[in-house]
Design a protein around this nucleic acid. Structure first.
Lengths: 192, 192
DNA sequence: CTCGATTGTCTAGCAGTGCTAGGATTCGAA
DNA sequence: TTCGAATCCTAGCACTGCTAGACAATCGAG
C-alpha cells in the first residue's frame, strides 16, 4: 500500500515538474521552443514519459493554462480588494489583468491564444477558467449600468482588455498610450 | 526586351498565384495545413520555387496579410460611407470589422495574430496596414470626444473590436450576446 | 548554326517536429 | 531467489521548413 502511495506521489510530482518546466521554457524562449524533446531532456526523462501523463503537447499547454487561469483570478481579486470604490476597483482590475498578460506572456497565450484543448463558455468548462471569469465579473457587475446583464458587460470589458493585451504585446499599439488607453476604457465603459 | 518583360509578367503572375493559393488553403483548412509542400503542389511547381519569391513561409503569410488589410480597409470604408450620422457610422464600422474577421478568419489571423514579419505602429509599417488603421480612424475621430486624441481613441476601439473578434471565433464568448455586445460597445465608447 | 554562359527548375537531403511500437530493465510480491 | 508486472527507453515513422547541387532550357555572341 505505502509503496503504491509513494509511487503515485512521485508520479504526481513528476507531472507538476512537467507543467512547471513547460511553463518555464515557454516564458524563457516562447512556446515554439517547447518541443517534446527539449521538455523531456529538461525533466531528465525520455520523450514517451510525457505521453504517459498527457495525451500530447496540447494537453500540456492546457495544464499550463489552467494553472495560469487560477493565478490570474488570484491577481485580479487581490488588486480589486485593495481598492476603494467601484471606479478604483475596475481600474485596478484592468491594470492587474494587463500586468499579468505583460509579465506572463507565455501563460497568457496558453490560456487565451493557443489551443489547449479546453472548453470555454460551456458547462464543461474547467473550474479555473470559470472562476477567472467570475473574478472579473465580481467587480464589473457593480458598474455594468442599469438593465445591462453583468455577464454581457463582463464579456465586453474582458474582450477589450484582451484586445489591449494582445495588440500591445505584439507591438501593434503605441507604448506611450498604454496608460491613457486604460483610463479611457474605464471611464467610458463603466457607469460609475 | 519584350521577352524579358513577358518573363517578369509571368513571374509576377506566379507570385500572385502563390499568395492566392496560400490564402485559399488557409481559409479551407487553416494555416497549419499551409505547408510549403502542399502549397508547391497546388501551384504545380516544386518547393524551392516558393523560396525564389519569398524568404520563407513567414513572408507568404505577410503577403496574405497585406492583401487582407487592403480589403479590410475597403470593407470598412464601404460600410461607413453607407451610413448616416456618427453613431450609425461607427456601428456599421464595428459590424463590418467583425464580419470581416468572421468570414475571413485565416486572413484575419495573418494580419493580426500570426507573425508575418511585418512592422506595426512604426514609420516603416507597410502602407496597407497604415491605411487600414486610417480607415478606422476616419469614422472614429468624430466620436472620440473632447480632448481625446483620435489616435488614442481609435487604438482603444480597435483593440476592443479585436478582442471581440478573436474571443468570439475561438468560442470564448457566448454567441447569443454577439449583437448586444456591439451595441453596448458603440453606446459606451462613443461620444455621440 | 553552333557553342558557352546564364537562367530557371527540380531532385534529394538536412535537421528538426509530434508521436508511438516494441524491446529492455527494474522492482515489488511470493 | 525467482517470477510477473509495471516502468522506461531506444529507435523509428511521417511530417515540417528550408537548401545545396545537379540538371535542363534558353539566350546572346561568334
Amino acid at each position: 500500500m505505502s509503496v503504491q502511495e509513494r509511487k503515485e506521489r512521485e508520479r504526481a510530482e513528476r507531472e507538476r515538474l512537467i507543467v512547471a518546466t513547460a511553463r518555464e521554457l515557454a516564458e524563457q524562449q516562447g512556446w515554439d521552443a517547447v518541443t517534446t524533446r527539449r521538455l523531456a531532456e529538461r525533466i531528465e526523462y525520455s520523450q514517451p514519459v510525457l505521453y504517459s501523463h498527457f495525451r500530447g503537447k496540447r494537453e500540456i499547454i492546457g495544464a499550463v493554462a489552467l494553472q495560469g487561469a487560477a493565478e490570474l483570478a488570484v491577481a485580479v481579486r487581490a488588486a480589486t480588494s485593495a481598492a476603494d470604490g467601484p471606479r478604483a476597483r475596475v481600474a485596478a482590475l484592468a491594470r492587474a489583468y494587463l500586468d499579468f498578460a505583460e509579465h506572463n506572456p507565455a501563460v497568457y497565450d496558453a490560456i487565451f491564444q493557443l489551443d489547449g484543448g479546453l472548453a470555454y463558455a460551456q458547462e464543461d468548462t474547467p473550474a479555473p477558467l470559470k472562476d477567472a471569469f467570475a473574478a472579473l465579473m465580481e467587480s464589473l457587475a457593480e458598474v455594468a449600468g442599469n438593465g445591462i446583464d453583468p455577464g454581457l458587460f463582463t464579456e465586453l470589458f474582458w474582450a477589450s482588455l484582451h484586445g489591449l493585451a494582445t495588440l500591445t504585446r505584439t507591438g501593434r499599439l503605441l507604448p506611450e498610450y498604454a496608460e491613457p488607453r486604460v483610463e479611457l476604457l474605464v471611464d467610458r465603459l463603466c457607469m460609475v
